[in-house]
Design a protein around this nucleic acid. Sequence first.
DNA 1: CTTAGCACTCCGATGTGCTAAGTGCTAAAA
DNA 2: TTTTAGCACTTAGCACATCGGAGTGCTAAG
Lengths: 346, 346
Amino acid sequence: MLTDRELMILKAIVQMYTNDGQPVGSKALVSQLPINVSSATIRNEMATLEGMGLLKKTHSSSGRVPSILGYRYYVDHLLKPDKVQSSDLRRIRASFNQQFQEIGDIVAKSADMLSQLTSYTAFTVKPELKDAKLEGFRLVPLGGHRVMAILVTDNGDVQNRTFTVPRNVDPEAIEAVIRIINDELVGLTLAEVFQKLKTSIPIQIGKYIETPEGFLDVFEDVLKKSATERFYVGGRLNLLDFSKQHDPGSIRSLYQLMNHSSDLADVLGSPDQNIRVQIGNEITNNLLKNYSLITATYDVDQHGKGVIAILGPTSMPYSRMIGLVGAFRTELARRLIDYYHDIDDI
Amino acid sequence: MLTDRELMILKAIVQMYTNDGQPVGSKALVSQLPINVSSATIRNEMATLEGMGLLKKTHSSSGRVPSILGYRYYVDHLLKPDKVQSSDLRRIRASFNQQFQEIGDIVAKSADMLSQLTSYTAFTVKPELKDAKLEGFRLVPLGGHRVMAILVTDNGDVQNRTFTVPRNVDPEAIEAVIRIINDELVGLTLAEVFQKLKTSIPIQIGKYIETPEGFLDVFEDVLKKSATERFYVGGRLNLLDFSKQHDPGSIRSLYQLMNHSSDLADVLGSPDQNIRVQIGNEITNNLLKNYSLITATYDVDQHGKGVIAILGPTSMPYSRMIGLVGAFRTELARRLIDYYHDIDDI
DNA sequence: CTTAGCACTCCGATGTGCTAAGTGCTAAAA
DNA sequence: TTTTAGCACTTAGCACATCGGAGTGCTAAG
């Protein structure tokens, strides 16, 4: 168990180090502490904290720096989330205070805002409704041989894609396909839709069109879009500032990671707690082992849950960041609830 | 006027420097030249070339490096475009050899290919048809209060956007609006459409809807999308490799430039010649004054002209790059002509 | 338990010497 | 007149030494 003074020292070291990035020496530390002891005493304490694995040195005669464990302890026991600055809150609200036409726009904007407020890289994920249902499907002829397929799900998502119809397909056949899809699939959950697409639907469509695969591919494609295009990244460039690793190779891999939504899904996961802080090698993905990740869910009532996250250096000012993420998630949830209220039938 | 030997030396220096990036000294140079002279002779020649401003030194006793003027001379008089490697040609064709659903996809893919082939950053611009005509306009109800607006132009461009209809608007009014737009605007050039949107249309629509501004904004928004979403960037990350300026500030500004299509339009311009090479400060934009830009148009017959470009270091291997850009532009043009052939009515 | 004092360590800045690669110049050779 | 060998000179880059400052651990006394 840690003594009160040890706690105080650990806390002070984390805060000083996250502020100016310099290893903290005993002299500098003693001048900041509210107690009156000599630097030698501090040195003894720091040595025991180091013995417990909470601090470490960058070289044999350097000041102390928190270890991963030290950050962990600080975050779990010492930290109190900062109240978010009112100017920040105003910025958030102002950015939400415009007319958005799609959920995606709001969530994308959120990633940008969050990255600006933190100067780090931010991720946002649209709310996922596990049992989202297919609400509507349209095929709109565009002239020539092109048709746009539009798919609407009951969580408000709209996806579309244009495609070219082979010349030998009869317009009536297309009508029939639309009818089949609307009769058979609308109202089902996406999982059920995928299921039926593999089984009964191809047979039914086959009665009208010789090669139903083309159509089904398009349909499946749009469905998948709806399932995967949920991730937004803001402040990619900030990575260049806070990343210590200046070798181009790992920076590249990081950027590739950010463009790959399935990898992002792995990294972000679905945090069970409300706000999760992962530090250094606690993050499962090896590329991120020198960074810290703060993840939080936001809850849009019956419209599911989404995720927001920020990625920064392990030496980030956790209390400010956690406060910010906490405030942001409630603002975002509120905004989305408003949005759904506007588009839903009453 | 330059002597033959001076030309030979200039050419060799540019080629050696663009190959390995090291300043070229008289000894190294003499060993590469087909003529039998001593290094002292070369030194004298290099001194005169430097006097003419075609070469420069990085420090008082360093080897020579081409100046902007030297590159210019090389590109204008000495260079012969490389025949593109057959393996590269195969890669290009393979990447085009799939079914694309939209022109934008082809052009975007081109930016990626071009950046991969060159290891630089590549830009592509969709063909622009100055007098593109509005070919169709659709409003598709999506359920709830949402409607998708779709706009098709006769150069094959499709743009869409969903929006929310105020509750108090009558479905018949929407029908009327669609009719008006189709009667009055379809078939006109985009410029004419913009014109009418400011004048007669609001009055006509005003008969059916109290606040026509909302509708017109949406319509105008989609129109603008069609006009501005023409730029694609590939290989952004390559910039990290070939950029000498490692200060984060200027890298940031460059990335911002790349995300700003109107700035890109300025930089790329509309090259009058077929392939234009701009070196260093010849590029109008100051951020790019340490790079070189190779721009080329491609011609899709009656469907307009587009632009492709690569951005790399001033010390790029020009002959290979120019050969590549030349080949790529014809491949891309061919592919797009095919595409239009497929979607157009025959 | 605390503290002053001291020996010790390491980083970083500064400076030195050396080498390799290159230059310009000169005077002789072609 | 052009070319060349030779030589003095310059510079970057590297290895190496030096030294002050910031920090530590340890010890012995308070």
